[in-house]
Nucleic acid binder design. Structure first.
Length: 507
RNA sequence: CGGGACGUAGUUCAGCCUGGUAGAGCGCUUGCAUGGGGUGCAAGAAGUCGGAGGUUCAAAUCCUCUCGUCCCGACCA
């Protein structure tokens, strides 16, 4: 029996159903916020660990800046102010007092504090104190933090008022070095998404109108969800000297002249988990790529005859310990022996909905044959879901099996992305016809709208943005691999457009 | 923040129109049977009906306000 809400009926309902069925998160009583439950947080911890390693490999160090940012700091960078003059949490009082039996805010602050929506301004302030000479550069730091944006329409993992992320901030002596840094970190994100999350992405930069407020260039990676909508999975900004000028990050260069530093910032958030769900989950629940799975192998004892319970338990524990000594992707295999007092069949389905890659069932028959029965989550209801194997062979090949699953998940996701980028729309008329209704299907049978990405020309004129909005589309990015050819702009119909862009509906 | 739907047991929901003893499925607890693809039978526990005010002899039900959730939109990681 699959989930109550299937993908083909209602994608949003299905999404929430997966989050609940996999027990990853739930809506909190605190409005707009989520409670990330152990399985969901475990996935986040895996993302953190893998990304943190990559961040450190590229010479960045972690540190921590305040949650509260004085309002005036926010006001320093003109574009930043405008771009971020949106819903934010503002601290205006410093205590509560009791009046008529009710708690009311008291002691107004001289200057309100903003609960950080992002930390460019407060970090730039520190950088201005740290940087005096070209010898102090580059400054390469990162922080793991929570941020708050007062979203009006929250969705678990994809958009919540408070979310967890990492934000890297760097300062450099030259334009080129900073620009290269922004690209390097975009590549780090791509590596994380592709090789660890099995979620292929398109790399590119945002059009001018869609840049981060205050950025010179915003680079991004875009992933395709199963409904054909695009999810911005990560961004990396080259900020030029904009923030350096407003925060006065100045240094003496090698020519003994004062110069403003060049800064970057880059981040990914718990939104990646939403992307992971919409990339890999199916109508039976979540599927977690082995590298990200908090538990990669689940062992469930099957005890029919209670007199054999001790024997089966001992067998399972021995198997657990042997598996734990195996190495997959440079780490010990993560194994859980699930001996909770529950029905074996319930445990099996629970872990299936959570998306643990391998579920092993051990019972009396296995003891006799010195074997195991294991299920491969991503082959559910197909050949290869249920497998029998000699226990020693299983132990010896568990890392190999996990790698195969990881590879297969990437291959599936990649096939979906590659197979659903429409490239043969060459005129504005064809383009309009293609999106004439919401019922453009990627595959047959589905009732929910699934719209492919269209890769085509854009003239770059901002007058085309109205048309875009009308069609409920967005320009996801200007991909790095430009063809350089000329053609008709799919929005304006103008000839001689040279930019290749990705048009898609988005999250 | 605009448009729509909705808040009743842990959960999914019925009951509301036409006011009069608080209901069901799943889940939970116990027992027996079962057990390698989502168990069966029996018994049991569990809700000041989102909150506040109003109408009434009487409110889950009618009225007002409020808070929250979901969907669509705008906005965004």
């Amino acid at each position: 029996m699959a989930l109550k809400n299937l993908r083909e009926n209602s994608y949003p309902d299905w999404y929430q159903n997966v989050v609940a069925a996999a027990d990853m998160a739930e809506v909190s009583s605190s409005p707009g916020c989520m409670v990330i439950k152990p399985w969901g947080y475990g996935i986040w911890e895996r993302i953190q660990r893998m990304l943190d390693e990559k961040i450190k490999e590229t010479n960045h160090e972690n540190c921590y800046f305040p949650l509260f940012i004085p309002l005036s700091y926010f006001q320093k960078e003109a574009e930043h102010v405008e771009g971020f003059a949106k819903e934010m949490a503002i601290v205006t009082h410093s205590r509560l007092s009791m009046e008529d039996g009710k708690l009311v805010p008291a002691s107004p602050l001289d200057e309100p504090l903003i609960v950080r929506p992002t930390s460019e301004t407060i970090i730039a302030d520190s950088f201005s104190k740290w940087v005096h000479s070209y010898r102090d550069l580059p400054v390469l730091i990162n922080q793991w933090a929570n941020v708050v944006r007062w979203e009006m329409r929250p969705r678990l993992f994809l958009r919540t008022r408070e979310f967890l992320w990492q934000e890297g901030h760097t300062a450099h002596a030259t334009f080129d070095e900073a620009e290269k840094e922004a690209e390097t970190m975009l590549n780090v994100y791509e590596d994380l998404c592709v090789n660890d999350m099995a979620m292929p992405v398109i790399k590119g930069k945002k059009p001018e109108y869609d840049k981060f407020p205050g950025a010179v260039t915003t680079y991004c990676i875009e992933a395709m969800m199963q409904d054909g909508r695009s999810l911005q999975a990560g961004t990396s900004h080259f900020l030029g000297q904009n923030f350096a000028k407003s925060a006065d990050i100045k240094f003496i260069n090698t020519n003994n002249e004062p110069e403003y530093a060049y800064t970057t910032s880059w981040g990914v958030s718990t939104r990646l988990i939403g992307g992971l769900i919409m990339t890999h989950a199916d109508d039976e629940g979540m599927c977690v790529p082995p590298k990200l799975a908090p538990q990669q192998v689940i062992i469930i004892p099957i005890i029919k005859d209670k007199s054999k319970a001790a024997e089966i338990t001992a067998y399972a524990e021995k198997l657990r310990d042997a598996l734990k000594s195996q190495i997959f992707a440079g780490e010990k295999v993560r194994v859980r022996f699930d001996n909770r007092p529950k029905e074996a069949v319930d445990k099996m389905w629970e872990w299936t909905r959570k998306g643990a890659p391998l579920i092993v069932e051990v019972g009396a028959k296995d003891l006799e044959k010195n074997a195991v029965m294991f299920r491969n989550r991503i082959h559910i209801n197909q050949d290869g879901w249920k497998n029998f194997e000699d226990v020693d062979v299983f132990i010896a090949t568990v890392a190999e099996k996990l790698q195969t699953i990881q590879d297969e998940m990437l291959a599936r996701a990649k096939a979906r992305l590659d197979g659903n980028i429409v490239t043969d729309i060459k005129t504005a008329a064809e383009f309009e016809a293609y999106f004439a209704n919401n019922n453009v299907y990627l595959d047959n049978g589905g009732k929910a709208p699934k719209v492919a990405f269209v890769r085509g020309k854009w003239c770059g004129d901002e007058a085309t943005l109205d048309k875009l909005k009308e069609m409920r589309l967005t320009i996801r990015c200007i991909p790095f691999d430009q063809s350089g050819s000329e053609g008709e702009c799919l929005l304006s119909g103008k000839k001689g457009a040279t930019l290749d862009v990705i048009y898609a509906r988005s999250y």
